[in-house]
């Protein structure tokens, strides 16, 4: 599971949970695989992110590079920044670990990079 997915996932589906975001991360194994950097696409991606959530997660997994806590204007022209974003967002795979609901502490396993967000009927 890449951080781009972590940036979207919630546990809002659980009974009694209001926002369920961001999910806490427990990392047991990380795998890194490089992929093509596309400047234009990353620039387009940034405004779609919850930046603060992204940076905190990237720092936690130790792949934040020089990502600033606050997004600076003119980021489209900052190639170093865009490369750091690309790396943390798309190249680092949380291969084994857990996602934890911030409100109920319900755990969701990540196994072989696949988060299991299935919930039982009585949890809905």
């Amino acid at each position: 599971m890449k951080l781009v997915t972590h940036n979207m996932l919630t546990s809002k589906c659980l009974k009694g949970v209001n926002t369920g975001y961001p999910l806490k991360l427990v990392v047991k194994e990380i795998r890194v695989q490089s992929s093509d950097f596309n400047k234009e696409f990353i620039s387009k991606m940034i405004p779609r992110l919850d930046w603060a959530v992204f940076v905190v997660a990237a720092k936690q997994i130790g792949h934040a590079g020089n990502l600033p806590d606050q997004l600076l204007p003119d980021y489209e022209n900052n190639e170093e920044l865009l490369k750091d974003v690309h790396h943390a967002l798309f190249e680092v795979d949380i291969y084994e670990g857990e996602l934890i609901c911030p409100e109920t502490n319900r755990k969701f396993q990540i196994s072989e990079g696949i988060p299991n967000m299935l919930v039982k009927e009585n949890e809905l």
């Binding site: 890449k2 798309f90 696949i114 919930v119």
Partner: peptide
């Protein structure tokens, strides 16, 4: 290929979480 993520979930999980993503 590496530009992907797989997610195990029920169809009902997706609607709110991934709205217009």
């Amino acid at each position: 290929l590496s530009s992907y993520d797989l997610i195990q979930c029920d169809i009902s999980y997706l609607s709110d979480t991934f709205y217009k993503r």
